[in-house]
Each structure stands twice: as C-alpha cells, then as structure tokens.
Design a protein around this nucleic acid. Structure first.
Lengths: 165, 165
DNA sequence: GTAATTGCAAATTCTTTGCACGGTC
DNA sequence: GACCGTGCAAAGAATTTGCAATTAC
C-alpha cells in the first residue's frame, strides 16, 4: 500500500474519530510514515516536523501522538530507557510487531512474523485471559555486534600466536 | 526456597558486587520479598519501607533499586503508564517471566511458564540475534472482567424480557 | 459562527544528582 | 581516618495542562 493511500486512510480514521484535519496533524503523520523504522520519541517527531518547514509546538506533537495512539494508528512503546516511542501500525497487522533490542549498540530491529499465535492460545486457555494485543521485545546481541566480538577474539588469538612464535 | 534463604543469597550477591549491606538496603529487599505480586513503583517501595518503621529516603530507594537491577536481582519493567516498576527475579529463572495486563481494571498477572523457547530459536536462526532476555506482556481482558461483562449482558437481556412481557 | 485546536509557558511527575553529614572497618 | 552510603533539597528530563489566540469545517 502506498504512503498516499495510507495517509488517506488515516485521515478518514481521524474524521471518523471526530477529529479535525489540521496541517500539524498531517505533518506529524507524514513524518511517521517516512521514518517507520526509527521508533521516534515525541521530541524526535517534533524536530523532524520542524525540519520540514512546518511549524509546530511540542505540546501539539504530544497531543497528536496521543490521539493516534487512541485510534490505534500508532503504538506507544517504552524500552529500557523509559522514553516513550511511537510506531506506526503496519497495514492490516492484527497485532503489534516485535522488537530485537541490542544491549551493546542499542539498535532496535523489527520482527514482523507472527510468532505468538500459539503462545496466545495457551494464555487464553490456561489463564482465561482474552488477549487483545501484546508487547514482545528480545534483549540480546545483534548480528553485527556478534561479528565485532569474533573479530576481536581472532585478533587476540593472533597476538597470542605472535607471542608464541 | 524460603524468604530467609533468598535474603541470604541476595546479601551475598550484594557483597560480591562490592556493595555493603545497609539497613536501608535490607529493608528494601524485604519489602520486595514480601510483596512479589504487586509490581511496585519506587514510590510504593519507599512507602512500604517507611510503614515498617524503617526510615529511608526516596533517593536511597531509587539508588538501591538501581543496584539490584544491575545485579539482576530485580527486573525493571515499564508498562503502558510509563512508570518504572520493579520485580524480584524468581529463583533460578533464566528469563524474565511474562505479564498479563488487563486493559479494563489494570490488574497485572504473572505467567511463569516458559512460553518462548521455541520463538527464541526462530529469532536466533532467522535474525542471527543472540537472545539474552525478553519482555513479553499481553494486553487484554482478565477473567474477572470477562465475567463482569457476561453478567451485565444477561442483566440487559432480562430487562429486555421484562419489557416484552 | 463556533467549537476544536494550537502555541506558549507554567505546572506536574518521575528520577537523578550534589553535597554535607554519619557510620563502618 | 578514608570511604561508602544516606538524606535532603535542588536539578533535570519527559510529559501534561491552562489559557488566550487562531483555525477548520
């Protein structure tokens, strides 16, 4: 689905929710659309909107993000740093996607696969809990940090060889 | 494992980490031990410690909770309200347990089952991400809120019957 | 026209920090 | 007596709110 279509759809959702379509709200949605992988904080969204010439206040960004969260157009996530970040929901995604948070470099990768349907079934049956959504984040070491490690290791090893030789 | 034993173990961990065992730290750990299901915020821990006669400053609670988090004795979690909460790690648990957060009454239930080992394998193989820990929270409706609903429904239905009769 | 929305600044909330004092080995 | 830990109060960071001016429909 193209960005223009997605934007159109979001506009409709705002209307249906009884909200007006202001330039500030449109600019905010556009920024979220163009930068879907970065998990921006409110401050970052605010900066990006200002960059694009559109003038906006930080409070308006917070208010807009809250509306979008209520309408389930974006999801609010908080990782270990305690800062709220905002993620556009993927088109047609029933559930929130998952995250891989690297504890070394801080990078956040996204996982779109639906990994939890089996797990949800267990939760519903065993705990009689009606699952509506979920938040899943893995903490660990990303592939590039792993490579960095093995490189360091082999360097140490070759130094060791130098000493022995 | 008994609380006394767990406390002893935590004392050792503090010592090994090069930290002293002050009355304030001991009181904080005791509060966490006695109230394992409530997911207390720093403020709540502070209040509980004060209740138990032990005098303590809020800053000390924050500092103690940070140490305990670093030592992986407690886990810091942030749910949707953005407030940091602290959970004692279960004895011998490799991984953090999961949570069921009711979107109606706000109650948080814990799930101890290891539901994710299969999912972690997929993540490691497909994304080459070395998993160290995870955070999983389901958002939904708890069993008692579900019951409340069906009760309301049957009440409405019986009123409807009254009208018809 | 009018009710919703905005921007600003002030207020709030949660958390961290600086520093003088007190306790411990 | 050096050093770690504490309490307090002040600072800081993130977010929310009150209000007068402005705007979308």
């Amino acid at each position: 689905m193209k960005n223009a279509e997605v934007l159109k759809k979001i506009k409709d959702q705002l209307h249906n929710g009884g909200y007006k379509l202001t330039p500030q709200r449109e600019a905010t949605v556009l920024v979220l659309l163009q930068d879907q992988k970065t998990h921006m904080s409110a401050e970052e969204v605010y900066m990006k909107v200002k960059e694009k010439s559109s003038d906006i206040g930080l409070a308006t960004v917070y208010r807009t993000l809250e509306i979008l969260t209520d309408l389930k157009i974006v999801d609010k996530v908080t990782f270990t740093d305690g800062l709220a970040r905002y993620d556009l929901r993927k088109e047609g995604a029933k559930h929130f996607h998952h995250h891989l948070l690297c504890i070394e470099c801080g990078k956040i990768e996204e996982v779109e696969d639906d990994l939890l349907s089996g797990v949800e079934k267990i939760v519903e049956e065993k705990y009689h809990f009606l699952v509506k959504d979920h938040r899943l984040t893995f903490h660990g070491i990303c592939s590039s940090c792993q490579k960095k490690h093995s490189q360091e290791d082999s360097e140490k090893l070759s130094k060791l060889h130098d000493v022995i030789e």
